[in-house]
Design a protein around this nucleic acid. Structure first.
Lengths: 206, 206
DNA sequence: CCAAGTATTGGCCCTTAGGCCAACAGCCGG
DNA sequence: CCGGCTGTTGGCCTAAGGGCCAATACTTGG
């Protein structure tokens, strides 16, 4: 990968933080540490790949609340929870909300590193997927409204004549829109168009 | 729905079972009860829609083991765990393995019914999806090997001439295979073909 | 051994898709 | 008010898709 992922460690107990930082660093991972959820939120750059190792109970914003905040902000950083006095309901809530793991102190080194590896892999895939979607959407954004309409009908499997009738125009016009949109999207076949549209959820009218 | 879903309750404690059965029945749901994981496995019909309310700790096969068994048998019945003395690690393991919820006794009636509703909805969607896939695969099974090859190339966006070259034959032959496979699949456009192939994971050679 | 299914090919003809050039109308920001 | 973008349409021509009929060849199960 071009940018090495970073493990973000958020814990209010500085001795726990230090120990976690050392452990993770000893495995050759990039690390950043924060004494509170608020500090993390303030300094975090969503563009940075990595994962979050998060203490469940902290003064101020606690772990589950930070998870909610990140979710609301559509930041999908994978989260590994760590807790000394967690409860089953809180662990279930965390897992339902998509946490990678929920570990209890004392945290086993192997278990934590396995969870981190899984989290980083998930983040990598999510970013790869997101980059792909963004690229497609960027190209879609260059289409005119009419071209997008035609695109939807093509994806729905309509032939030019039918599309023309549905849009109240003639076949020749559809051909031109169709040709332009294919060129703008950089593709040459209907098959590619359908796959591309499927990636961003365009299905089109029946 | 044509077949009403059934709540399968598995718990070794008969008084807990009775109480769960009454609760669920009072909400108008179909119920079946089993005193052990083994009894459930033996009597369960995978075709039956519904969800599982499962006690975590039971003599013999315990809840997590049954979850593994069902997973190995590719039975994707949504599971709601119930426990009196569960641990955080067991709840995390259950959730990681796809459980809908993990409730601790005493189980709140509202919480359980909400979990059941979510589980039934998940099962409904899974069965709907599975039925769709099965239908497509049944139609794909009627294709000859050659027709499947051609299908892959068409989905990849190749034109007849290219496909003919790749398969060492002539364009006319490809046209015939192509026409026949479209007819067998009951579709009329490449767009439909690509969507259908995408549903069952056919991508084809580049 | 024969019939059926599969794979292949040819010819003929029609429909669709798509490229190239040209033209016209409406709308908008500079 | 004008240039540029968008949407529209026409003519002309080539490429690609697809239907219909016919024929050949190979394999395989009964």
């Amino acid at each position: 990968m071009t940018v090495p992922p970073t493990i973000f460690i958020v814990d209010d107990d500085s001795s726990v933080r230090r120990s976690l930082v050392r452990l993770v660093q000893s495995h050759g991972r990039q690390v950043r540490e924060y004494p509170s959820a608020e500090a993390f939120l303030q300094q975090h750059d969503p563009g940075q790949p990595g994962c979050l190792v998060l203490d469940l109970s902290m003064p101020g914003l606690d772990g589950l609340s930070l998870q909610r905040e990140l979710d609301a902000a559509r930041i999908s950083l994978p989260i590994i929870f760590i807790t000394g006095h967690g409860s089953i309901p809180s662990s279930v809530q965390a897992m339902k909300a998509g946490a990678i793991d929920f570990l209890t102190k004392p945290v086993g080194q192997d278990a934590l590193m396995r969870a981190i590896d899984a989290a980083l892999e998930k983040d990598r895939l999510a970013r790869q997927n997101h980059a792909e979607i963004s690229g497609i959407e960027a190209r879609l954004a260059t289409l005119t409204p009419r071209e997008r309409e035609v695109l939807a009908y093509v994806v729905a499997g309509k032939v030019n004549k039918q599309i023309a009738a549905s849009l109240g125009t003639v076949e020749k016009t559809i051909k031109v829109h169709r040709s332009r949109l294919m060129q703008k999207l950089g593709i040459t076949s209907v098959a590619q168009l359908v796959k591309l549209a499927g990636r961003v959820g365009i299905v089109g009218p029946p």
